[in-house]
Nucleic acid binder design. Structure first.
Lengths: 82, 82
DNA sequence: ATTAACTTGACAATAAATGTCAAATGTAAA
DNA sequence: TTTACATTTGACATTTATTGTCAAGTTAAT
């Protein structure tokens, strides 16, 4: 654990918490972890992103609908106006 | 504008920014806005949530895939372990 | 009992979101 | 055109969320 956390530039405390889901990892940490643990980077990232998404809509009745709208928006390449 | 912003408990400056997309509204502000402007609350909320989602995955190649994973997760009622 | 690995909780540091204010700009009617 | 009010802008303050450190507490193996 010391080895891994060192490579991640954090102390073991956080790593421990991340492992047990008490803390969220950083995007950067995710990719580093993928490398270190030789896991599939894409899968990990997808997992990570999907967790962030779910976090946003947790206990929202309209969550699913929002997801679908988001999907369509992406597909149709709608750009956000500044 | 003063009227509306007063009801939202913010000054006109923010309202102005929200209207022109420089600032994000709060969830609470969204629902109040729906009432004040007599818009459909659900639609506004869905719009609001979907924007938050899109924000999370902006310029992520794996965004769409993450969305799909998130959807499935919701459908299967997977609960997040504390 | 000693040691090293891991966990926990209280707190510090940083970063992001939200808000205020005051000054600048726009707009229309007198 | 000046006055009066509405809207916008930007610089900054406040609040809230996220990420991190540290020190003390467990656990497990020897």
């Amino acid at each position: 654990m010391r080895h891994v956390s060192a490579q991640l530039d954090i102390d073991t405390a956080i790593l421990s918490k991340i492992e047990r889901g008490e803390r969220k990892a950083t995007r950067e940490q995710i990719t580093k972890l993928a490398d270190i643990l030789e896991l599939d980077r894409e899968s990990l990232l997808i997992q990570y992103l999907s967790e962030k998404i779910l976090y946003e809509i947790q206990d929202e009745d309209l969550g699913i609908q929002a997801l679908k709208v988001a999907e369509k928006t992406i597909k149709y390449g709608v750009t956000k106006n500044k």
